[in-house]
């Protein structure tokens, strides 16, 4: 592999990669989510049956991943807006990225109990 294939690297590129990957993942979930919600037009039973899968422990872990993707995309998106519209945005892009990561970690710790608590009670018993 020739040298210099990796474009720049560091915070700027990796945040861009993460923004892309999370964005695509969220968009694909969105299709599924509109379809499952559309089942309310079929029957209450059909909808409740599909939503029951959202309450299983395995899908709860996927939901936690979805929350992780959405939170990163949201916070980093605000950073991108700051880089584009704030006069000093480009100068502080690294500091803003580490603020995004720090806030993301805090929110993800906060989301453990609300998102995974239900699954933990199913697996370990309440």
């Amino acid at each position: 592999m020739p040298a210099g294939t990796l474009y720049r690297g560091r915070e700027g590129m990796w945040s861009w990669v993460a923004h892309r990957v999370t964005g695509v993942l969220i968009f694909f979930f969105l299709f599924v989510h509109v379809l499952d919600t559309a089942l309310v037009r079929v029957s209450p039973e059909a909808y409740d049956r599909v939503v029951a899968t959202y309450k299983t422990p395995v899908v709860a872990v996927l939901e936690y991943g979805l929350v992780a993707a959405i939170l990163f995309h949201a916070l980093n998106g605000l950073r991108v807006i700051a880089v584009d519209f704030w006069a000093k945005g480009a100068r502080y892009q690294k500091q803003m990225l580490w603020s995004v990561v720090g806030l993301w970690v805090l929110l993800m710790i906060g989301a453990i109990y609300p998102v995974l608590g239900h699954a933990a009670r199913v697996v370990f018993g309440s």
Partner: peptide, 27 residues
């Protein structure tokens, strides 16, 4: 994006966090 931050995070809060999280969601 700015509008969606409010709409989606609010949606997640209601659906996955408040009132027992996802377990209360149903028809």
């Amino acid at each position: 994006g700015v509008v969606l931050v409010v709409l989606v995070l609010g949606h997640l809060l209601i659906q996955l966090v408040l009132d027992g999280g996802v377990s209360k969601v149903g028809f």
